[in-house]
Design a binder for these strands. Structure first.
Lengths: 189, 189
DNA sequence: CTCGGATGTCTAGCGGTGCTAGAATTTTGT
DNA sequence: ACAAAATTCTAGCACCGCTAGACATCCGAG
């Protein structure tokens, strides 16, 4: 009976082992290289073990995505809290872009690969936590608009910078100026 | 000798047949459903024929992406040219979002699936053509910034709206207001 | 301490994928 | 008419995600 607790603990441990392995492999060689076979070999278990933890490969990607969104949320909040007064928006935006370039595979998992994550009203707590620091910096700029709509619009602007830059669509050497433009436009100079 | 011209013509014809088939299948059932086998069956040729036209599945996706970017460029330019004076930016942005929601698979091919398309200085003509109408509407708002940087920033804002909305990250019923926010912020009210 | 049942893990394999070597066929020019 | 060249197809490779069923291990009752 008591041992069942240990087993459960070991199970949870192995689950994070899987997620971490998937994340590391994706960050090292890209998501296509993260196959169930290679993942199983990496953690030194057979493939069916993975399916006893996750519904399928997609669920593993989702788990990495969720973990990543959590870290992104923390990074944004930390940036906001640690910024000079008046510079919160710039700090949060910069943190967002830094996360995207610093953890490209996790960013990809969170925003283009994840398919099983619920959004909207019944989104997990972590997702709402990520929205909070954005709301904190964009809502004051709402004027007579809906603060949430302004936040979504500002988020979209930063997110667009991140994804277009990641895909090589923008001139790399002007990233800083582009961000400056977005910030000025949203703060009204 | 003369017949070689006909053969070349037929070859080109079959190539567009392939691209169109891929595009229709993707738009109907999503890109994962576009397999080389199904594509070959659809055009009533064997698989190796596809490889005599394209280097691989990825190259077919790229071809759809390129075609789509061309159409997007035309749509943006048409919107700009047909807009009331002073409403060009709104018209172009709306056309961009309409294209994204109207041809989701093509949009996906162009911006998240395409991997073999060159960007930057040696980008194909079509890509630069797509940038032109954006530059036309954003450059006048540059102020003392680099007009191209402002264009890239504006493009990113619209693009971010498109992709976040597509992935269900934003409240669907507020799409119009978000666009209004972006437009106001960039035009300075 | 034994041993049947439950739990956990693995081996082996299914149908599908992108891609390709080599056979078979058709078209071409003499 | 026929050999050469170009084109198309058949068949198969290695890999993918996923799973049924065999095997091993651990548990608690007698």
């Amino acid at each position: 009976m008591v041992t069942s607790q240990r087993r459960e603990r070991e199970r949870a441990q192995r689950e994070t082992l899987i997620v971490n392995a998937a994340r590391e492999m994706a960050e090292a060689d890209g998501w296509p290289a993260v196959t169930v076979r290679r993942l199983a070999e990496r953690i030194e278990y057979s493939q069916p073990v993975l399916y006893s933890h996750f519904a399928g490969r997609g669920a593993i990607v989702d788990a990495v995505a969720l973990q990543g969104i959590g870290e992104l949320a923390e990074a944004l909040e930390a940036a906001r809290a640690g910024a000079e007064p008046g510079a919160e928006l710039a700090a949060v935006a910069q943190a967002y872009l830094d996360f995207a370039t610093g953890h490209p595979a996790v960013f990809e998992a969170a925003f283009t690969l994840a398919e099983g994550l619920p959004f909207g009203p019944d989104a997990p707590e972590v997702l709402k936590a990520g929205f909070a620091p954005l709301f904190a910096v964009f809502a004051p700029l709402a004027g007579d608009h809906d603060p949430e709509a302004v936040t979504e619009a500002g988020w979209a602007a930063i997110h667009g910078l991140a994804v277009l830059a990641r895909d090589g669509r923008l001139r790399p050497e002007h990233q800083e100026e582009r961000l400056a433009v977005v910030l000025e436009k949203f703060t009204g100079r």
